[in-house]
Amino acid sequence: MPNQVLMIVILAAVLLLAAARFFPRLQLRTVLTLALLAVIGYFLLITVAEMPLFGKAVNPAHNEISLRYLEQGVAETGVINTVSGIITDYRAFDTLGEATVLFVAIAAVIATLKSH
């Protein structure tokens, strides 16, 4: 715990110094925002320290789901690019949603630009 407290103090100090350096007219609101963000950052940092270690094959994310994609994906979808197999077959509905997002962006852009 002392480590973490030290870390957060250092981080907050660095942030505040940087802020003071770049914004000579530092306002109370800015300081408060920075303090809030430092707190958020602190919590995220201790979360990172606790996360499953990067790159390890035993992490919970590498479970039977990805194994099945890798082992039976070729037989079940008929494609050798597994990522392609996932986005257009196993989770094709997401990709339909994604095409729809593109469509809605177009509709929104054209509607906005035409109406003004």
């Binding site: 590498h62 789901i65 994609y69 990522v83 986005i87 989770r91 994604e98």
Partner: peptide, 14 residues
């Protein structure tokens, strides 16, 4: 693991 990559492909377009 191919799944996160596939999800992020969607996320990028969004």
């Amino acid at each position: 693991n191919p799944l996160p990559g596939a999800l992020i492909l969607t996320g990028i377009v969004v």
